[in-house]
Computed example of a mutant assay.
Amino acid sequence: MWTKIVPVTALIASVSLTGGTAYAAPTTPVGGEALGSRGLVAPAGVKKPPKTKATSYVVADADTGQVLAAKDAHGRYLPASTLKTLTALTLIPKLDKNRKIRPSRNACNQEGTAVGLSVKATYKIDDLFKALMMSSGNDAAMALAETNGGLAQTMSDMNAEAKRLQANDTVAKTPSGLDKPGQSSSAYDLALIARAGLANPEFKRYISTKTSTFPAPKGHYEISNHNKLLWRYKGMVGVKNGWTSKALGSFVGAATRGGHTIVVSVMRHEGYFWEEVADLLDWGFSVRGNATPVGQLVDPLPDAQAAPQPGASAPATQVTPAAQPPLLDTAAKKQTDSSKTVGMVVIGGGLLFGLIWLGYGIRRRRGRSRL
């Protein structure tokens, strides 16, 4: 019988840094105490979740919000293009999908994956959202951000939306997910964002579209969805995959069978994750309704509570909740399903030295997005 891991919490109540600044460790992680574990947490009395090479993952019942299993659910990692889920969720309600725009040269010249925007063509906002969520276009992400009032405004809006969703591990620095110092998300947050997106009919339409025509300066061409499971997995609804050389592979997806929807998110996967995600989805469907949840995907905050207070808003570049210390990343990467105790021991010392490291302002170099 598989036994649920009991997490270690509050290993360090606070750490004093040079200058007297103190960091207070949260007493209860969002979604429940068990989700604070760096190791695998799973329900007793049902079969063990299938193995995955992902450093962090969450399997949840999208209907009830119950987290069925997780590993390092709140570990903060570079999200790569899975961050585009937050971009879409934030901007879909703000932009008229029938509006036409001509993208700037800056948008058209974004590095990494692009749908091929041209300054000589005009595009409907609807087309740009398809390019964002189907083809993972970094050029489309920037065009949408500029249409929303500019990059700074969009970053502020995205971080406000993350706060509303209680996705507190998420810090958006780019609309595309291109690596940038201070940017982060977690498997828990990606599942939260995806669940909220599934409730939006337009978001759901974009992520579930397999192929579509896309305008060009002369005529049209066809684009296809990068989510391979739309073709391979029965009941797959969609959502988003991502990859950069620094973030490695990331994915958040949802599938519906028998009227029930399961969400799976994985982060920092070193290889080909599609089959492993399919196995996790299968496991979620097999145990839902029969397993004691290990946590909960929380509901969004009430609008009044989530809204910024007058005079309290800050530029987007200043929205920087504490990023996961690099040494915690290292501990998580080395942790396996059979080394949970070691992982939990490392977290205490890792937190101490990681915070001191952050105090000296060491920053990670920028990666390059391909998905």
Rank of each mutant, 00 (worst) to 15 (best):
S250Y: 01
N159E: 08
G112F: 00
G361S: 07
G177K: 04
G75V: 06
A42I: 03
P326L: 06
P43C: 07
I125H: 11
S186K: 08
K100E: 15
T261S: 11
G112C: 03
A312F: 07
M267P: 00
P29R: 03
Y77A: 05
G238D: 04
L328F: 03
A24H: 13
L355H: 05
K124I: 00
A167M: 10
A255E: 03
R76T: 07
P50L: 03
S135W: 09
W243I: 13
A323G: 05
E202M: 05
D279T: 01
V119E: 15
L165Y: 06
A194T: 14
A34C: 04
C108I: 01
D179G: 14
A143I: 02
W274N: 15
T18G: 12
T87G: 14
Y188E: 02
L355E: 01
G45M: 12
F285C: 07
I362R: 15
R232C: 05
A140C: 04
H269I: 02
F203P: 05
R164F: 06
R370I: 11
V41A: 09
A34M: 09
P215N: 11
T244V: 08
A314R: 14
N290I: 02
L355M: 04
W283L: 04
G258Q: 09
G32N: 05
F129G: 09
G359E: 13
P217I: 09
A22N: 12
Q66H: 10
H74S: 14
T27K: 14
R365K: 10
G238M: 01
F285V: 07
I262H: 06
A322I: 13
G182L: 07
M155E: 10
L11S: 12
R365P: 00
L132V: 02
K163Q: 11
G32W: 04
N227W: 08
Y188L: 02
N109E: 13
G219C: 02
A167D: 13
T147M: 08
D61V: 00
K180I: 00
A331V: 09
Y57Q: 11
L327Y: 14
D169F: 02
M1G: 11
G45H: 13
Y360C: 08
G258F: 05
K173A: 05
S250R: 02
F273D: 04
D337N: 13
T317A: 08
G75C: 10
T147I: 00
P103F: 00
T82Q: 05
C108Y: 10
L355V: 03
V294C: 09
K4S: 15
K130D: 07
R368M: 00
D139E: 10
E222L: 06
P302H: 10
L91C: 04
A69D: 06
N290H: 14
L83K: 03
P302K: 12
L89C: 04
A247P: 09
V345T: 13
G350V: 02
K100F: 11
L17F: 00
T90V: 06
L35I: 04
A22R: 14
G150R: 00
T317L: 00
Q335Y: 01
H269C: 08
A167C: 12
G284K: 09
E270P: 10
A199F: 06
G242M: 06
K100L: 14
P29C: 05
W243H: 15
P50K: 03
A60D: 11
A114I: 12
L301F: 09
K4H: 11
K228F: 00
P50D: 08
E202V: 05
G137T: 02
G271Q: 06
A107W: 03
H226F: 07
S224W: 04
T256N: 15
